[in-house]
């Protein structure tokens, strides 16, 4: 009976971790995606100062969450994402506007792909 009780508690714990990880990853990726979308809008209206600030905000947010994300996601995916997000600030200038839009779209696609891999059952 004691073993069964421990087993039930372990089941509850694993379920709780699973639910927490789902909410956490979903929330993080949604926030980063929203920031990147805002940065793209700022770049489109040629507000490069805001674009750089928002990109820096996205980078800072990702860096803060990266250690927790590493508990649930493959490190090579996170490393690739980290590199892409960090580079965006450098592109937020008038002469690199097209590059910024391209890189930010690529990063958003990568975010969506990783999110899909994390949540897909098959």
């Amino acid at each position: 009976m004691k073993r069964t009780t421990v087993a039930v508690w372990l089941l509850i714990l694993t379920l709780a971790i699973g639910i927490f990880s789902s909410f956490f990853v979903h929330r993080c990726f949604k926030s980063i995606d929203q920031l990147l979308a805002q940065a793209q809008e700022a770049c489109a209206v040629q507000d490069y100062e805001s674009c750089r600030e928002i990109s820096a905000l996205a980078t800072e947010y990702f860096m803060k969450q990266e250690h927790l994300l590493a508990l649930f996601l493959r490190r090579d995916y996170l490393r690739s994402l980290s590199t892409d997000i960090s580079a965006l600030s450098e592109y937020s200038r008038a002469e690199y506007a097209q590059d910024f839009l391209f890189e930010s779209s690529k990063t958003r696609t990568e975010l969506a792909a990783i999110k899909h891999l994390f949540f897909s059952i098959i």
């Binding site: 073993r3 372990l10 089941l11 714990l13 694993t14």
Partner: peptide, 9 residues
Amino acid sequence: VLIASFELV
């Protein structure tokens, strides 16, 4: 942990 718990239950 999940498999062991399932087995016990």
